[in-house]
């Protein structure tokens, strides 16, 4: 199966498509996605860092350049940011392809709270693959969506430390945190 990165050369940013491809191939191997055709399209006209997946053949991952950028050196590529961003989105692809996430709403229908629980689930797993993750950054993101309280922090811990959750279980942890805080 194939993995492709577009564009091959960049105008607005100093990114290396071969380097991105190597990182993607490594992560695809870790997450067992070798049987999928995947294309990674990078939008280099914006410094924002949004990512979006279109399922088909190939699976197309749209990524804005900010997701791979070193914020201390604008327009330069960051290896950790590239790894973390690709890791997060590829884990989401892996989840979406599994029956355990069949009930997950479409990306455009996810609430900000649902986005936060799924992101937490992804980065928690990434951190156990020897990929450097700033846990506090994601805790702050989770708190912003679930509240700054103990119930929210307990829910974060549970999701962060889990490897085999279904969408319904994720949603249930989130719902419980919100209910306890009220």
């Amino acid at each position: 199966m194939t993995v492709e990165v577009t564009p091959q050369t960049f105008t607005f940013v100093s990114f290396d498509s071969a380097y991105i491809l190597r990182i993607a191939q490594r992560l695809i191997g870790i997450f067992g996605l070798e049987d999928q055709n995947i294309r990674i399209d990078i939008n280099e006209t914006t410094p924002l860092g949004k990512m979006h997946v279109e399922f088909g053949d190939p699976i197309v991952i749209n990524i804005q350049s900010g997701a791979f950028e070193d914020f201390s050196r604008p327009r330069q590529q960051s290896e950790p940011a590239t790894t973390q961003s690709l890791g997060r989105i590829l884990l989401k692809v892996s989840d979406r392809l599994s029956p355990e996430f069949a009930d997950a709403p479409a990306d455009e229908d996810l609430t900000l709270m649902q986005v936060a629980i799924w992101e937490t689930y992804c980065v928690g797993r990434l951190s156990r693959h020897d990929i450097e993750i700033n846990r506090q950054r994601w805790l702050y993101n989770f708190r912003n969506r679930h509240g700054f309280n103990d119930a929210s922090d307990r829910a974060f811990e549970k999701i962060w430390n889990s490897d085999k959750l279904t969408w319904d279980q994720l949603q249930s942890i989130s719902d419980t945190a919100v209910a306890l805080a009220q």
């Binding site: 006209t45 914006t46 410094p47 924002l48 949004k50 986005v115």
Partner: peptide, 25 residues
């Protein structure tokens, strides 16, 4: 830096860049 975070989309939901908690990022 020729890139920009400012959208030229005139729809209110797309055009709001103010740093508020309801922003996705």
């Amino acid at each position: 830096d020729q890139r920009t975070a400012i959208t030229t989309d005139s729809r209110p939901s797309r055009a709001a860049n103010r740093i508020v908690p309801s922003r996705a990022d």
